[in-house]
């Protein structure tokens, strides 16, 4: 049996009830979406699971602020959603097709993918590059940038992630995602996500994120600064990719060496920026 210490499996009917159960459950209580990781890693200290599936958090809504996706929406539901398919030339759907397998995507939720903060996550680097915001419920709702969620992860204790918001892309914006893995199914050796907004030929918003370094996805500020205010020429892309390689804080692990990951960062950022340039050029035609 997977979770031998598990005493309670609860399916609260309201978010408030879920929060109360989480707080009353103390250290042994965990909130679950699909629950994949808890079964897979079976942490021995978990005694209470609080399943969010009854809370009507499975939705994708388009509003003035952007695309709001409920925490228990599965990755498959996102892939199959028409509006998501059109978001920034399908960059989200393209990324999600590279995540695990269809069987797992039918279980995995977007809330779980973001809250579990897995260093190999493909979702987190792209959503960081897209300036996603998450809504947390701790008795009140708080909207914070996804990038604020990870440095301390303190937001994740005693609160429940209920929604992720992808902002409406400004005109002249394009994004791209590239992942390197040994097989289509395997987790990333490294992944890169970039977003660029161009005004009058110059880059005015730049996001360059590398994940699976093998640590959690994070921005590469030196590379972003190199591209700011510049044109997306071959020379600039080469220069930015070079800075990304040099500044990426890569490490060795059983999947790849730090040095190999540096080279992957270079190739990934270069491919992302070339694709962004092509997408922006297509948009102008």
């Amino acid at each position: 049996m997977a979770l031998t210490q598990l005493k309670e499996y609860l399916r609260p009917a309201t978010l408030k009830e879920a929060l109360t159960l989480l707080r009353e459950g103390g250290k042994g209580a965990r909130v679950i979406g699909g629950g994949i990781e808890l079964v897979l890693f079976s942490p021995p200290d978990v005694t209470t699971l609080i399943d969010l599936s009854e809370l009507s958090l499975s939705y994708i809504k388009e509003n003035q602020a952007g695309l709001a996706i409920g925490a228990t929406t599965t990755l498959t539901q996102i892939i199959e959603h028409q509006t998501v398919a059109q978001y920034l030339d399908g960059v989200i759907v393209g990324m999600l097709h590279q995540v695990a397998s269809p069987l797992l995507r039918n279980l995995a939720t977007i809330g779980g993918s973001l809250a579990s903060a897995n260093p190999w996550s493909d979702v987190i680097p792209l959503f960081l590059a897209l300036d996603a915001k998450v809504t947390l419920f701790d008795g009140k709702y708080h909207s914070i940038p996804l990038s604020d969620l990870y440095p301390t992860r303190s937001h994740l204790s005693g609160s429940i992630l209920t929604e992720v918001l992808l902002p409406v892309p400004a005109s002249g914006t394009a994004a791209s995602f590239h992942q390197f893995s040994r097989t289509g199914f395997d987790v990333a050796l490294l992944n890169c996500a970039c977003l660029v907004k161009v005004d009058a030929g110059r880059c005015t918003v730049v996001r360059i994120v590398a994940g699976g370094t093998p640590r959690l996805g994070a921005a590469l500020p030196a590379a972003e600064e190199t591209l700011m205010g510049m044109e997306l020429t071959d020379e600039t892309i080469e220069q930015v990719a070079h800075v990304a390689r040099e500044s990426a804080d890569t490490r060795d692990d059983r999947r790849a060496s730090a040095q190999y990951r540096k080279q992957l960062t270079y190739v990934g950022v270069k491919r992302c920026l070339q694709e962004i340039r092509d997408r922006l050029a297509e948009g102008e035609q």
Binding site: A2, V39, S53, L107
Partner: peptide, 10 residues
């Protein structure tokens, strides 16, 4: 779905 990763309670 992979039934090995779904809790029966779910």
């Amino acid at each position: 779905v992979n039934s090995c990763l779904v809790l029966a309670a779910k």
